[in-house]
Structures are given as structure tokens and as C-alpha cells.
Amino acid sequence: MNFATLDLNLLRVLDAILAAGSTTKAGERLGVSQSAVSNALNRLRHALGDDLFVRRGNQLVPTDFAVSIKDGLREELNRLESLLSRNDHFDPRQASETFKIAASDFFAELLMPGLGGVLNRKAPKMVAQLVDLVPENYVESLERYHADLALIPDTDSPDWISREVLFRSSFMVVGRVDNPFLAQIEDGTELPMETFCALSHVLFSPEGKLAAMGDAALAKVGRKRHVAMTLPVFSGVCRVVSASDLVALVPSQLARKFAPEFGLKVLAPPFEIEPVNIIAIWHRRSDANPMAKWMRQQVFDLLKPLENR
């Protein structure tokens, strides 16, 4: 192959066929006819010395060579797009793009209200979307939900991920202020271990699990608790606590936010729970995207102060 004479537009065609699985759908993606895609494919076959696709019934099946270059080709096209858009001017007042954030409902309470105010003042035509995280694989949220940003507990991540450390979140116990089992315990003090283990608990778990970090920490000191209920949203956890004698372990920032609204007493747990480091992650292909950079900075500015709450 002579790379110096290769028409780079052909690589966009190859990427589209690999993604769409047919020349017709690839043409629709690129805004060209099916015959134009077929002609480009024939030129690529000649240039690269490989069939690239073989027909099986009505399907185009990529050859081993085509499969081997699929991910690398997409990455290089993304890198080229990012390079060429690096100097694009971004005017938030005129921008009308959509920015999608994957995160738990913690951020529905502690990010989205503030972000709504920012967008209303600075970028009134933009749209922010909050979607849930992919269970068990938070990094996958970027790909599966086409999210521009994911807000997650710190974890190992692949090379194609960029990251920003945001804040640490510790845990507090919440119970309703007139819970008779907490009557003799002052707000802001430590809940005794015997009381903590004797009470029934509500657990935040989008997947419906009956154990979490608090249970692992309890096990280290040879104790356990009874989880009576699980809910997929923190607001629901606090609402149940406010209407019953159940208690819950929740992030300290949420505990302090919900305490006045739901009439909750906030207490320190009687054992050590390692704080969770919350980070933002995004695809490196968006590192230099002016709109994405601007939106990420608005999110960072709203969330980093949570470190001190």
C-alpha cells in the first residue's frame, strides 16, 4: 500500500461500513449513495490488498484484517476530528448542543439544580441530560449511553479515558428526628454500635443488592446489620427513613442537604468507612472539543466545593 497516494476519505467509508454492517446504511450515515460506498470499498480493497468484507447471505462480514483495524481506525479518525476542531470558537450564548451526563441520582440533587441555573444564565439554548450508570460497569456508560461525561467512584480505567478528581464523600447515618430509638442521641454525635445494629436499615442499591460498603466495613469489626429495604434512588431512601423507624447510611453531602427537608437527624457511624473518591471520566476524543470542555468545567466548578461539605 502506498499511503502517500491513499485517499483518506476512503477510511471514513470503511469506518462507516464497519459500524453499520452494510453499504446501504453506511451511505445513509455519510449522506452518499450506496453505489458510491461500493465504489469506495472496491478502491479500498485494491489499495489495502484485502477483501475487507465477504458476503454471507444479505450480510457483509468483515475479514480478519478489517476486524483487526476497526478500533484503531475509529480512534485515529476521532483523533483527527479532535485535532481539526481544536481551534473552533465556542459561544455558550449561541450553543444549542446536548450534553449527556451518566451518574447516580446523588447528582440529580447536588449537581443538576446548580447546573440548570448556570445554563439558564450562560447557555440558554443548551440541553443537559442526566442518565443512569450502567450497572456493574460504570465506565461502559460512556459507550452504551453515548454519554459525554460520567461521574463515578474512583476506579481503574482504560487508556482511552480522561479523568478529573472531584471530591471525597464520607458517610453518615440518617434517621427521623422523632425516631424513638434515637431520642437520647444528639444530632451530630456518634450512633452507638448496638443501636446501629439493632435498627433495620434502608439501602441505596440500583441493582437491588442487600449489602454494600457499610456491610463490608461492619464485617471487619465482626458485626452485621439487617437491611429491610432497598431503593434505587437516594431521595427515596431518605423519604422512607423520614416516615419510619428505619435508618440509612448515605453520603454526608446528601445527609446534610436532606436533613431539613425530610426532618432527619444526622449521626456519625460507629465504625470506620473509607470515604469514596468521586471522579469525572470522559472519552479522550472529547479532550479538545470546545463545547465539551466548557460543559465539563461548569460541572467541575459545581462539584469540587462538595469536598468541604
Rank of each mutant, 00 (worst) to 15 (best):
V233M: 03
P180Q: 08
D156F: 04
V299N: 02
A16E: 08
E81F: 14
G175L: 03
N120A: 07
K304C: 06
P270C: 00
R144Y: 11
A292G: 14
H201I: 01
R284G: 14
E109Y: 01
N58A: 13
V202R: 00
L44F: 08
L151R: 02
A40W: 04
L11Q: 14
P124L: 07
S68V: 02
I281W: 12
M229W: 06
L303N: 07
T63S: 03
R86F: 15
G57P: 02
F106L: 08
K293I: 15
D88L: 14
Q253C: 05
L110P: 03
H283P: 13
P290G: 11
D51I: 12
F65A: 06
P124D: 07
S170C: 09
A183V: 13
V118G: 07
N58T: 14
K209V: 00
L77Y: 15
T23N: 15
F258I: 03
M112H: 01
R296I: 13
T155C: 10
N179T: 11
N179Y: 11
A16Q: 08
A211S: 02
P290N: 12
D15G: 14
A102K: 09
L302C: 08
V240A: 02
V266P: 08
V174S: 06
M172E: 10
F53R: 07
V174G: 06
F106Y: 08
T98D: 04
P62H: 10
L218A: 01
L6K: 02
D51Q: 12
N58S: 14
S235Q: 02
L191M: 13
W160L: 13
A212T: 02
V118C: 07
V233T: 07
A248K: 05
L44G: 06
A147G: 08
V174T: 12
S33L: 03
S35N: 06
L267F: 12
A123F: 04
I185K: 07
S85I: 12
A255V: 02
M295P: 11
N137S: 12
S38C: 05
M112R: 00
F196R: 03
L60Y: 14
V202C: 00
A228L: 03
V174Q: 06
K304M: 05
A147F: 02
D15F: 13
F181V: 09
H46C: 10
P232G: 02
A243S: 05
A66T: 08
V134G: 10
A288E: 14
L52E: 10
I279A: 14
T98K: 05
L52F: 09
S169D: 14
G49Y: 04
V37W: 03
V276M: 11
G188D: 08
L166Y: 04
K265P: 11
L151F: 03
I161C: 14
A47D: 01
L83N: 15
F204V: 11
P260H: 10
E261F: 08
V174R: 04
V139H: 12
P270E: 00
N308F: 07
R239E: 00
A198I: 04
H46D: 11
V134D: 10
D301I: 13
L210P: 03
L249F: 11
G236E: 04
L218K: 01
H89M: 14
K265N: 11
S68Q: 02
S68W: 04
G263F: 04
H89Y: 14
A16I: 08
K257P: 02
P180R: 06
A66S: 07
A47R: 01
S169F: 13
R309H: 09
T195M: 09
H283G: 14
L77I: 15
N42W: 08
A217S: 06
L119D: 03
S169A: 15
P275A: 09
